[in-house]
Design a protein around this nucleic acid. Structure first.
Ligand code: DUT
Ligand code: MG
Length: 820
DNA sequence: CCTCAGCCTTA
DNA sequence: TAAGGC
DNA sequence: GAGG
């Protein structure tokens, strides 16, 4: 745990740090990885030892890495081999330039034009070869470390959530964040007061206390101690140890039956236990045969409808079954008071409520009001990010590569350049949908949980559900077709204390995307706030407190108060049917804000409308049934292998990598991003490969549709976007990007993302006087006042990721940490 | 009051 | 150039 | 919408 308390860093950041990235850079955050299959600790340890080893041998990390790199191994497997380069993360940025192996730096290409030239001879040989740079980076994780459990089902499992309002449901009361639950029952008022007072106090403390003094939120994993107060202000604590089947749940054991053993089991499975209902409970266990009225009385409630919205009253059997299957199961078959009415809503998309398990996150409580609107259920908020594009080249003329057309050498097959090695992306680990965050700190979390149980009221929140974003393949609820790729949420394992708030902001962000007239930066502010809250380790209990965090200003702070207090403020009034509908339409690939608004004006209200009525959508769009759902990591891997093998069959020296969220370790991805290049040492290039590759894959049935094709397939820099599938499987979005060899480093950074990280890094580069794009880091770029580039500038670094980070003076970070 | 990443394809 | 996209 |  390196982490210094993240919280510490987050609060009261020095003024200059305007950029999230920089911010993070200082904070050593490692607290809440959204996507990270790996065992960070072990990984870091490995890195360190590796660096030491190399240093010992060569004395210079950079050189060492380069050298090592050159040995690109192909391993597919053998992790060991990837011992390649040690990340230079440890190295001091300053040296970077110096360290750069000589033959490499070069200025070559300073000008774009050069790009087409086959590798500049000179250096080529030496340099590039070295491999991929990346190498360094990406890493190899020590084989050992990874024991990660195979996908723990739990994550995926989505609970049924206490999510949307179910008419037939019993509970209708207010629901709060587990961090600030309000006890229900007779004493409610009094306690509420206490709570308020308590909050004020804590807020006050937070206000006066300098950051460092804030709760010692220990670094990740360590049980964070609840700082002040004993009470119920939530804590986080991630319980991952005994399983996480019940992660994210807050279960009330009605005073009857064998409470103790039951509590122990629930805690073991990652759930929270309370003996008295409060506004954050998700389930109530009841199987004594009591009537609803009796149960209510026993719980100290006037009526069961006082329970928070979505609370499920279930039989103990549900828990045992969850334990048995190691995942959170739908409660449908275990309801103490089976539903009588069938759910009505969800008209629009075909997905029926019942079969679609909702993910915890989304599922988790919601403030009253904010969900009422009946929108189709794209349940997950979609963090839809902005857009911008990869490719870049200016295309300009030239492009073409003169010379040799294709590299396609016949010998190809021989050398399998598997790239994997180069980047060393780990496929296996993936943990699948749900791996558990490893980390050693869990012990503490568990301890805390247990303690919480003992006290009779839970103080910890062990959430960590898997948030799978979409329905899995087997899900019967076939939703309508063509959404854009899966909505965000790559399946992040760990959850902080503010997850609930973060989810509210995700939702708000989604809604605002459909609100016309709202400033794009304002909209982004909500997206950003969600991310900030998500990785803040300290429970946010008031807007004022949150306001100290950079990125949360007055307005957002107000929204936070509204959410926290369950008040219907702006967030509520602006959540209109129109905005939601437009936002949802935007999820359809190719439908942007304008078209979505037009569809709404024309009367469309649901995705179903778009499919059935004539709104001018192309038949192609209807084909994309499957695009809605996210792609499980393993399927991404299979697609990647199909593509890679096809590419290598054309030219065995190609470097083919899978990028995007996959490289960041995500359990599932919205699409498959492939990056291709070729070492020019033998004076051959990959020109024309893309065309042949796409053609070949089309022949084999892997590629089924084109969305956009390169202006010039023979350009070394080209991008193909389309749809494909594992024959017989779901249709998936696929992007294939090719780049000149010299841009490897810049392209890796770009294509690895995530998007917000890229923007942050680019902004940072700009402030340092550079310009970073998918081709590399440039200096001397001049733009007119509209932002259009007038002078290309000169390439400063792009051979490897490390080189770029070094020049910027920022430590290299592993893909899974590349979030803003 | 200014800035917010940087480029690509399609129509 | 506008719209949509990465 | 937030920050310089
Ligand atoms: O506006 C954007 C969009 C994307 N990218 C980069 C970062 C991103 O990681 C990569 C691939 O884009 P994609 O949309 O596929 O995102 P992802 O990170 O792979 O997530 P997903 O799982 O949704 O595909 O391109 C940007 O730089 N700017
Ligand atoms: Mg992707």
């Amino acid at each position: 745990m390196s982490a210094l308390a993240p919280g510490t860093g987050i609060f009261a950041p020095p003024a200059w740090q305007d950029d999230v990235f920089a911010h993070l850079d200082r904070i050593e955050t490692d607290s809440a990885f959204n996507e990270d299959p790996e065992d960070i600790e072990a990984y870091e340890a490995w890195v360190r030892s590796e660096v030491v080893r190399k240093l010992g041998g060569h004395g210079d990390t950079h050189n060492a890495s380069s050298r090592v790199a050159s040995s690109r191994v192909n391993h597919d497997v053998a992790p060991a081999s990837r011992s390649s380069s040690p990340p230079s993360r440890l190295s001091s940025p300053s040296n970077s330039r110096i360290a750069r192996p000589s033959g490499i730096s070069l200025p070559h290409h300073t000008q774009l034009q050069t790009r087409h030239i086959i590798g500049t001879p000179a250096r080529i040989s030496t340099a590039p070869t070295i491999a991929t740079p990346t190498l360094t980076a990406p890493l190899p994780h020590p084989p050992s470390t990874r024991i990660r459990l195979l996908d723990s089902p739990m994550s995926i499992a989505t609970p049924q959530s206490p999510d949307r309002t179910d008419p037939s449901a019993i509970a209708r009361g207010r629901r709060d964040d587990p961090a600030t639950p309000v006890p229900l029952g007779t004493a409610e008022l009094d306690k509420l007061k206490k709570r308020k007072g308590f909050q004020e106090l804590t807020k006050h403390l937070a206000d006066i206390m300098p950051p460092p003094a804030l709760p010692q939120s220990a670094g990740r994993g360590l049980g964070r101690g609840r700082g002040r107060g004993r009470g119920r202000l939530g804590m986080t604590g991630r319980a991952k140890i005994g399983g996480t089947a019940l992660a994210g749940t807050r279960i009330c054991l009605a005073p009857s039956g064998p409470c103790k053993p039951r509590a122990a089991i629930i805690v073991q499975l990652g759930g929270e236990v309370v003996l008295h209902p409060d506004t954050a409970v998700t389930h109530v266990i009841e199987d004594s045969g009591a009537s609803a009225a009796m149960l209510a009385r026993r719980l100290g409630l006037q009526s069961l409808s006082d329970l928070p919205v979505g609370t499920q009253i279930v039989k103990w059997e549900w828990v045992t079954q969850c334990k048995f299957e190691a995942k959170l199961l739908p409660t449908d078959n275990y309801l103490t008071f089976p539903r009588t009415t069938q759910r009505s809503h969800t008209p629009s998309d075909s997905e029926t409520e019942s079969d679609r398990p909702r993910r915890m996150t989304a599922a988790r409580r919601r403030t009253a009001g904010f969900d009422a609107g009946g929108l189709p259920p794209r349940s997950v908020p979609a963090l839809q990010m902005a857009r911008s594009g990869p490719h870049a080249i200016t295309t300009r003329n030239a492009s073409r590569n003169p010379s040799r057309p294709v590299s396609t050498d016949n010998l190809s097959s021989i050398h399998r350049s598997s790239d994997t090695d180069r980047i060393a992306t780990r496929h296996e680990p993936s943990g699948g949908p749900g791996w558990i965050e490893p980390t050693g700190g869990e012990q503490d979390a568990l301890d805390i949980l247990i303690v919480g149980v003992k006290n009779g009221s839970v103080s910890t929140e062990g959430v960590e559900s898997g948030s799978e974003a979409e329905d899995e393949p087997g899900n019967p609820s076939r939703k309508a077709d063509f959404y854009k790729c899966g909505q965000k949420h790559e399946g992040e394992p760990s959850r902080g204390p503010n997850e609930w708030l973060a989810v509210q902001f995700d939702k708000l962000h989604h809604v605002y995307e459909g609100q016309q007239g709202k400033n794009e930066f304002a909209i982004r502010g909500y997206q950003r706030a969600a991310g900030i809250l998500r990785r803040t380790d300290i429970p946010i209990i008031s807007g004022a407190q949150a306001r100290k965090i950079k990125g949360i200003g007055e307005s957002l702070a107000q929204r936070i108060d509204e959410f926290l207090e369950g008040r219907q403020g702006r967030a509520y009034y602006e959540d209109t049917l129109e905005a939601r509908t437009i936002a949802t339409f935007k999820d359809v690939y190719g439908v942007g804000k304008n078209f979505a608004a037009e569809l709404y004006r024309k009367g469309a209200r649901t995705i179903e409308d778009l499919k059935t009525k004539e709104y001018g959508l192309t038949s192609g769009q209807r084909l994309y049934d499957d695009l809605i759902s996210r792609i499980p990591r393993d399927e991404c891997r299979q697609l990647f292998e199909l593509i890679r093998d096809a590419a290598l069959a054309i030219d065995g020296k190609l470097w083919v990598e899978i990028m995007g969220s996959y490289r960041r370790g995500a359990a599932n991805s919205g699409d498959v991003d492939i990056l291709i290049t070729r070492d020019t040492a033998d004076r051959l290039t990959h020109a024309g490969i893309l065309y042949r590759l796409v053609h070949s894959l089309r022949q084999s049935g892997v590629i089924t549709h084109d969305l956009s094709c390169p202006h010039d397939y023979f350009d070394l820099e080209a991008k193909w976007m389309g749809v494909g599938r594992i024959p017989g499987g779901k249709y998936r979005r696929i992007d294939i990007l090719t780049i000149p060899f010299e841009y490897w480093g810049g392209a890796l950074i770009y294509f690895t993302g995530n998007e917000v990280f890229n923007r942050s890094l680019r902004l940072y580069a700009r402030k340092q006087g550079y310009s970073l794009n998918q081709r590399g880091l440039f200096r001397g770029v001049i733009r007119d006042r509209k932002g259009n580039k007038t002078t290309e500038g000169e390439l400063v670094a792009s051979r490897t990721e490390e080189e770029i980070f070094d020049v910027l003076g920022i430590r290299w970070r592993p893909p899974h940490q590349r979030r803003p």
